[in-house]
């Protein structure tokens, strides 16, 4: 079972890296989401698959019965899922806002924060290369 999870982790991680190396922003976003899922698989595999029964302690007992799943990775995975989901949603909105403002989804064309003319040889040339100030 761990071998299968490891294989799945590798596949997801590889696909995520491949997507994130693309210039297209939606692909980068999909890559990020896959990367988050790969990490969650890694947590589950790291905790070993020791059983599949729900990890509930029966009344009167102090230990889990044999065959119960490891509860800790599940708690960690749940936390990680929530965080990955929230941050994924934020990046999605960010990509949409970039599209709305610049009409481009090509990462190479996004040069607003780092304009092509910089670094420049002198103060005047550098000031000319800066984008016109967007804020009043």
């Amino acid at each position: 079972m761990e071998a299968l999870l490891a294989l799945l982790f590798g596949t997801l991680f590889g696909a995520a890296i491949y997507l994130m190396l693309a210039r297209s922003l939606p692909r980068v976003l999909l890559g990020l989401i896959l990367l988050g899922n790969a990490a969650i698989i890694a947590i589950l595999a790291g905790g070993r698959v020791i059983g599949t029964a729900p990890p509930l302690v029966a009344s009167g007992e102090t230990l889990l019965a044999a065959g119960a799943a490891n509860p800790l990775p599940q708690a960690l995975a749940l936390t990680a899922i929530v965080i990955a989901f929230g941050l994924g949603a934020f990046v999605m909105v960010l990509v949409w806002a970039v599209w709305r403002e610049t009409r481009t989804l090509d990462a190479e064309e996004l040069r607003l924060a780092e304009p092509p003319g910089l670094p420049a040889a002198g103060a005047a040339a550098a000031a000319a290369a800066e984008p016109p100030e967007a804020r009043p």
Binding site: L110, A113, P131
Partner: peptide, 14 residues
């Protein structure tokens, strides 16, 4: 809400 901030935030976030 500057335009260059969106560019910056995207790189920073990813």
């Amino acid at each position: 809400g500057g335009r260059e901030q969106l560019d910056a935030a995207l790189k920073y976030a990813v």
